[in-house]
């Protein structure tokens, strides 16, 4: 399960933005939205004849495998760095 997401955005003429987002805290704060998303996902699974529990388990495994991912995109003096720990 991801613990911390680090985001760094550099743009010319702007201050560098650095964000450290604790995933657990974000999940707790966004829990009402996540609950609605879960319900929407279940309805979508039922509409498209997908196995609900297998899909939820698959998405859980996918999220669980995210730590260690790193995305770094640079274009000239603009840069975006996203690290999932």
């Amino acid at each position: 399960m991801p613990q911390l997401v680090t985001l760094k955005i550099e743009r010319p003429g702007h201050r560098t933005v650095r964000l450290w987002i604790p995933v657990l805290l974000a999940v707790v704060l966004l829990s009402p939205v996540l609950l609605l998303a879960l319900i929407g996902g279940i309805i979508a699974c039922l509409m498209f004849d997908m196995r609900v529990f297998a899909t939820i388990a698959g998405v859980g495994r996918f999220i669980g495998a995210l730590p260690g991912s790193r995305f770094h995109i640079e274009q000239g003096r603009t840069a975006l760095l996203l690290i999932i720990r």
Binding site: F62, G68, R70, F71, H72, E74
Partner: peptide, 24 residues
């Protein structure tokens, strides 16, 4: 000049492959 540098865990690919099997 531009650069894209992406690192993903192999476990993430494996999880993605299993998830793709569920697509109708």
């Amino acid at each position: 000049p531009g650069r894209v540098n992406i690192r993903v865990p192999v476990a993430l690919l494996r999880a993605g492959v299993r998830l793709s099997a569920l697509v109708p």
